[in-house]
Amino acid sequence: MAAAGTRAARSSKRPSKAAGTTPWLWMAFALLVVMADQFLKLVIVRSFAYGESRPVTGFFNLVLVYNKGAAFSFLADAGGWQRWFFTGLGVVVGLFIIWLLYRHTGQRLFCLAVSLILGGAVGNVVDRVLYGHVVDFLDFYAGRYHWPAFNLADCAITVGAALLIVDELRRVRRQ
């Protein structure tokens, strides 16, 4: 009787797998994010001179700038070591996310969130490895205030982080 109770307790701790979802599906989605990010960066790099800006609306420009640091150019002037630090960090985070995808395949919102983060992280790691910096091209502003330029990979990471918060709030509410 105790063995049956222990088995039931153990099986209830395992994440359920939703029909038709696998870690490979989520990793393929992350790869689509990487491909879209790299494609857009390539279009911008081939169409713009460094620092060139083209207005699109009254609050948005396309621009070509490089970021050797992290978010908001954090550590951009650190002397070069940050390139490999942020590359290594991106690889470690990517491997951790792949592990999470295997552990939580049936949790669709969670997997969508971490897949977006994975795709964004890999997109920026590719830039760091190939160019030594991240290519940014989206410039939003209000009046004279400009938000620091960013890219599709950054958008994916931000949306993924927001979805993680929503997922956690939903899980807490269910309990």
Rank of each mutant, 00 (worst) to 15 (best):
R170T: 05
S12T: 07
V159A: 10
V125S: 15
G143I: 08
L40C: 15
K41M: 10
D154S: 04
R171G: 03
R103C: 14
G119R: 06
F72T: 05
A49M: 14
L163I: 04
L164T: 02
A71R: 00
F85T: 03
G5W: 04
E168Y: 12
N124E: 14
F86I: 10
V114T: 13
F60P: 08
L109T: 11
F60C: 08
V93F: 10
A30Y: 03
F96L: 15
D167I: 02
V33L: 09
D167V: 02
R170D: 02
Q82N: 07
Q107T: 09
A149N: 05
F72L: 14
F39L: 14
F48W: 15
S47N: 13
V43P: 07
Q107Y: 12
R170A: 12
A149Q: 03
G160I: 01
E168G: 09
H146D: 03
W24Y: 13
G90W: 06
S53Y: 06
A121V: 13
D127H: 08
V34C: 03
R171N: 08
V166K: 01
M1Q: 09
V91K: 05
L42F: 15
C111V: 09
Y145H: 15
I157A: 05
T87G: 07
V166Q: 01
L118F: 11
W84Y: 13
Y131L: 13
M1W: 07
P23L: 06
G106H: 02
G79K: 08
V159F: 07
V93H: 08
F59N: 05
A28W: 04
Y145F: 15
E168S: 12
V159Y: 02
A3I: 11
P15K: 01
A76E: 10
H104I: 05
K68T: 13
